[in-house]
Structures are given as C-alpha cells and as structure tokens.
C-alpha cells in the first residue's frame, strides 16, 4: 500500500476512534452497553439517549463541521496567498464575525438567536469587501487589505465594548469559541454550505494546484488566475464564516491543520483537502473531548484547548520543517 492510500485509510479510522471516544467519555462515562442502548433507543427514552442525542452528538457534529470548515478555509487561503501564515483571520473572518456579533449585542441584545446569522453575515461581508478590493491585484494585496479591514473592524468592536462594558462579557464568550449548547438544527445550514464548498474545491482542485506555480506560469497554462483566486477567497470566507457562526472564533485550526495536510499529501491539492477535512474534525473533536473531561464537571472552552494543543504541535512542525514545507 503506498503512502497516499495509507493516509486515506488511517485518517478516517482515527476520526472514527476519536468520535467514539467523544460520545462515550465526558462528565458521565457511558459503558459499551449504555452507549449502544442509548444510541439505538433499545432502553426507551433513557438518560443515555438524552445525553447522546441532546448533548454529545450535536457537539460532535459541530466539532466535525467547524473543524472541516476552518481547515478548508486555511488551506485555500495559504494556497492563494502563497503565505504559510495565512488563516481565516487574515481575510477578516474573525473581525467581521466579531463586529456582526458586537452590533447585535449592542443594538438588539434580546435577539441572541440572531447571533449566528449576524456572525456569518459580518464575516462574509468583510471578506467580500477584501476580495472585491483585491480582485485582479497581487497576492500580497489580499493580505494587506485583510489586515487593514480587520484593524478597522476591531477598532469598531473596541469602541462599542467601551460604550457598554456589559456587552463585553457576552462578546468574550463568543470570541473564545466553544461548542457547548450547540443544537443540531443550527448546524444544518453551515453543514450544507461547507459541504457544497468542499465539492467545489474538489472540482477545481487541479486548477488550484497550478496557483503554486505563480501567476505568470499559471496564466500561461490557461488558468484564469484572477477569477480562480476570487473564487477560492469566496469559498474560504464562506467556510470560515459558516464555522464561526455557531462555534465562535476558534483559533489555530485554520492555521495548523493545512500545514499537517500538506505534509501528509504534499503534491495533490485534492488529497490535501480531504486530509484537511478529516484532520480538522479530529483536532476539534479531541479538543472538545479534553475540554469536557480535564476539569469535569467544569468545562474548558474548545477555543482554549485548540490553542493549547495546536501551538506546541505547530512549533514542533516548524522545527521539523523539511522539503515539502513550501506551498
């Protein structure tokens, strides 16, 4: 079995193992019998069923969807900007989502149900603004425009939080990021959106590969570089905006996972995309699991855990950076 096939087998198995663990382990440990009984409903309307269907399965799906979405976003952004440090925050996703949430908390604090929509809207509008500005301009323009728009929106967030300090406490909960209280129904639209983006990324995978040859070579091969880059940026922003709409501003996933995916599949972007989807899921499910058990019955937000796991591992990768480290 070659390396490519090994990866395609090992990662899904790893993901399955982590998912099983996440469903069984928590503040209440479910034995094998309790787990299957609760899952299949053979014990009727039991506590185990309640734990699984109301708490753990929505969290698990949330972690898988957010992990995949942020990873796709980071992978695309690092490819189109040719910058290994690019992540969803670089194209204004975090600042846009944060600003949308802050506006809702400030002007309509009773409409908390609107928060996922305003987070998505803020993130997507901010990135569209950047894409519109950077269309047919250089790769570095994307990054610089992202930094500028983010700075502007962050200033807006700080301004509103100064006007009403109570809003700041609610905003902090969103900015740390977490999956507690996630419900299945709020995952449907993000899952659909990220799924569609995934299929489009796979469809254009071989063209996206050409972007690593630089604009001149890619254009000479018949690739419409400006349009493809704009498409990638829109897909990246849609994926990240969908993820932060229900999971908050999770850091590090969109930066770290693409690096590991490129290590596992250094040549083919399509395979990198599949790896990123699986790895993003593994990382967030694992972080969520640890967050639930480390200080049980208290809970550590998943955003803190992703940074705690991610930062040392990322550092290790940088030290061991080898031949396929370039994008």
């Amino acid at each position: 079995m070659n390396k490519k096939n090994r990866i395609l087998w090992v990662l899904p198995l790893l993901l399955c193992a982590v998912c099983c663990l996440s469903l069984r382990v928590g503040s209440v440990f479910l034995s094998g019998r309790e787990f299957w009984g609760g899952l299949l409903g053979t014990d009727g309307f039991s506590t185990e069923s309640l734990i699984l269907y109301e708490i753990r399965l929505p969290r698990l799906f949330g972690a898988l969807i957010a992990g995949s979405g942020l990873s796709f976003s980071g992978l695309l952004l690092q490819k189109v900007t040719g910058n290994a440090l690019a992540g969803p925050n670089i194209i204004g996703v975090n600042a846009g989502a944060g600003f949308g949430v802050m506006l809702t908390l400030f002007f309509a604090p009773t409409l908390v149900l609107l928060l996922p929509i305003t987070a998505f809207g803020g993130a997507f509008l901010a990135t569209l603004l950047i894409v519109g500005f950077a269309y047919h301009r250089s790769k570095s323009t994307v990054i610089l425009a992202g930094v500028s728009i983010s700075a502007l929106l962050n200033a807006g967030i700080s301004f509103f939080s100064l006007l009403d300090p109570d809003v700041l406490a609610s905003y902090n909960h969103f900015s740390i990021g977490g999956l507690s209280g996630v419900q299945t129904k709020e995952l449907l639209l993000p899952a659909l959106l990220i799924g569609i983006c995934f299929l489009i990324i796979l469809l254009f995978g071989s063209r996206i590969d050409c972007l690593s040859l630089g604009d001149a070579v890619a254009s000479s091969l018949g690739v419409r570089v400006g349009s493809l880059r704009a498409l990638c940026l829109i897909l990246a922003s849609a994926c990240a905006a969908a993820a932060v709409s229900f999971a908050g501003l999770l850091g590090f996933v969109g930066l770290m996972v693409p690096h590991i995916a490129r290590r596992l599949a250094p040549v083919c972007f399509r395979l990198q995309t599949v790896c990123a989807a699986l790895l993003g899921g593994v990382l967030l499910v694992l972080a969520d699991l640890l967050g639930r058990v480390l200080f049980a019955p208290s809970e550590l937000p998943v955003g803190i855990l992703t940074a705690l796991i991610g930062a040392p591992f990322f550092f290790y990768l940088l030290i061991r950076r080898k031949r396929y480290a370039s994008i």
Binding site: G214, L221, G222, Y324, S326
Partner: peptide, 20 residues
C-alpha cells in the same frame, strides 16, 4: 485563455520553488 495556452507556452524568468 485555453486556446492561447494550446498555441503558446511561456517560461518566465522567475520560477517558483513550488511543493511539487
């Protein structure tokens, strides 16, 4: 762009060190 790419090929001066 596709027709053009089948008729002419360009090798620019600066060649990126892509991961390929």
């Amino acid at each position: 762009s596709k027709e053009l790419a089948q008729l002419r090929a360009l090798l620019p001066q600066l060649l990126p060190n892509a991961s390929l």
